[in-house]
Amino acid sequence: MERIPILRMGQFLLVTIQVDMHDRLAMQLQDDLTQRISEWNSKGVLIDISTLEIVDSFIGRMLANIAAMARVLDAEAVVVGMQPAVAITLVELGMSLEGVRTALNVESGMELLYELRGDFHEEIGG
């Protein structure tokens, strides 16, 4: 079955959505990410949507669900790279993705994750 790959980078997970997702694929990603967070005890998830040409209410709900599930599992989710036209449309559609942390690109998204999980990371590093 078709799946969106989830990369493991230390305590974080990285997902780049590069396909026009049908609804089942989006649900699959939501389930897979929740599984991985729990299995690998991940502390953060970075979701890169820079190649997504639209975010409709279904994808928006998926992103909100992932953020909520991550939080319940003691992890943080950051959505990065939303295109300006997508942001305009999403807000007009009526979704503001409340509760979902965002950053402009992968780099600042990673910085945000390290910031949120800073203490833990220093412990590991030191």
Binding site: D23, D56, F58, Q83, A85, I88, T89, L90, E92
Partner: peptide, 17 residues
């Protein structure tokens, strides 16, 4: 325009679903 394309495609996605 790109914004109008995005709005049209998003509306189509909602209504098709």
């Amino acid at each position: 325009t790109l914004v109008d394309q995005t709005k049209l495609v998003t509306a189509a996605s909602e209504l098709a679903r």
